[in-house]
Design a binder for these strands. Structure first.
Length: 167
DNA sequence: GCCAACGTTGGC
DNA sequence: GCCAACGTTGGC
């Protein structure tokens, strides 16, 4: 049975994630134009981030879609996990920059989930996120953090989606 | 299994 | 473009 995806309701078995995307690669507007407003989160080549997708993500989990490595870094939209993990096809594609010669279809190394847009929001800049003491422990805001996928505490999710998102 | 060298990330 | 931080690689 599919759980309700509405982001304002927190459910006990639901998890929350912040996922970084470079807007030059896939921005929130790019996502909005894709079929089903859904994107395969391919290209993750970090084991910790892969393991989050492979071992912990469930359909319906809440996602903050974050613009990174760009002029205005910050949260650009709300999304949800819309599939469980499956092998990232780019690892087998010799022409892809994500090609991995050590991966085979029999023994895939990299996995990804699908992510579906819930809605675009007015950008919450990294500067604003850092202003709130409620968010001081957010992984993404920690010095030196580079992980492209990080778990969010339910309290952090609630604070951001109810207090910082303008309705 | 250590660790130096190297590559990548991503805010600034 | 800089560079701090951190992950990965590979010789030993």
């Amino acid at each position: 049975m599919r759980r309700k995806p509405h982001f304002l309701f927190s459910e006990i078995d639901m998890r929350y994630w912040l996922m970084k995307s470079e807007p030059s690669d896939c921005s929130i507007d790019d996502l909005a134009k894709l079929p089903n407003q859904t994107v395969a989160w391919y290209g993750v080549r970090n084991y910790q981030a892969r393991n989050f997708m492979r071992d912990q993500m469930q359909v319906g989990d809440g996602v903050l879609f974050y613009h990174s490595n760009c002029k205005e870094p910050g949260i650009a939209g709300i999304a949800e996990v819309s599939s469980t993990a499956y092998p990232d096809t780019t690892q087998f594609d010799k022409k892809s920059k994500y090609f991995d010669p050590k991966a085979t279809p029999e023994q895939p190394r990299w996995m990804n989930v699908d992510v579906k847009l819930v809605r675009k929001i007015a950008l919450i800049s990294i500067e604003e996120l850092k202003r709130h003491p409620e968010l001081e422990n957010m992984r993404t805001l920690q010095r030196g953090n580079r992980l492209s996928i990080t778990p969010l505490d339910p309290a952090e999710w609630r604070f951001i989606t109810t207090r910082l998102v303008h309705h």
